[in-house]
């Protein structure tokens, strides 16, 4: 069997004495897109932060492998260089740092960490232009400080733009669809679909089945009270949409 891109075994994590993740198990093989749906506050963003290495959490049990490597031993920047990308539910503002500057710094930092040379400015500009056109991000926006004064939808598009440029192995999209208008949803979905590849996997967190019409998942998971309580194909999302989460509460074994 091929090594999964992401493998989470019995992951428990707490913040300020409160357990949020209570035994997450999840395997995502290469090339697959998995969707995660679940109530507000069930711990979806927490899972994404813990995977990305945010400091505030204490991991009390469990194991995570990224392409076979122990993810929990790496610091956040190492995880990024190893190919883990998180599109934030709430992207952070970096005042004074032009989006373009930030993108270049990120790409080159990752290349450096992997022992690769810096990307030349013309190559970088070409890559940004291509990705920008695809995601309807105009050059004016790239000159503005990252996320400062961006509309909700612009922030989400900027996240996907970064993802497209960094070419990660494992993409986690935390509610990337929220705040997008109908057209933007199409554009962003197209951008994400373009990144689907045999050696790249995705974990798509969403509240809306509609997104999954655009980004069709291989597997849908229901997340409840800190763990995955049900998994199925894309029809599971339709079922959830119709009935809500009540059926799945306390369904975990």
């Amino acid at each position: 069997m091929t090594t999964p891109i992401l493998e989470i075994r019995n992951l428990h994590a707490r913040i300020e004495e409160r357990e949020i993740l209570k035994g997450v198990n999840l395997i995502i093989p290469p090339g697959e897109v998995h969707a995660v749906m679940g109530r507000n506050g069930s711990g979806k963003s927490t899972l994404s932060y813990v995977l990305a290495g945010k400091e505030d959490y204490e991991i009390t049990e469990g194991e995570v492998l990224l392409d076979g490597e122990n993810l929990l031993e790496m610091d956040p920047a190492e995880r990024a260089a190893a190919g883990l990308f998180l599109a934030f539910q709430y992207p952070i503002e970096i005042p004074g740092v032009a989006t373009m500057t930030f993108l270049k710094a990120a790409i080159n930092a990752q290349r450096k960490a992997r022992g690769e040379g810096e990307l030349s400015t013309p190559d970088f500009m070409r890559a940004v232009k291509t990705a920008g056109t695809e995601l309807n991000v105009d050059t004016d926006m790239l000159k503005r400080p990252l996320n400062v004064g961006f509309s909700g939808g612009e922030k989400k598009r900027a996240e996907v733009l970064q993802m497209a440029l960094l070419q990660p192995k494992m993409c986690i999209l935390d509610e990337t669809d929220s705040g997008l208008d109908i057209d933007a949803l199409q554009v962003v979905s197209k951008g994400v679909n373009a990144l689907r590849a045999a050696n790249r996997s995705m974990l798509v967190i969403t509240h809306y089945q509609r997104l999954l019409n655009h980004i069709v998942p291989d597997v849908v998971h229901v997340f409840s009270d800190g763990r995955i309580v049900e998994s199925g194909d894309k029809d599971l999302a339709l079922q959830l949409e119709a009935k809500g989460y009540a059926d799945f509460d306390g369904a975990a074994a």
Partner: peptide
């Protein structure tokens, strides 16, 4: 954290 998630060290 945001910057580090994008690959920059501290």
């Amino acid at each position: 954290f945001y910057c580090q998630q994008r690959g920059l060290n501290e």
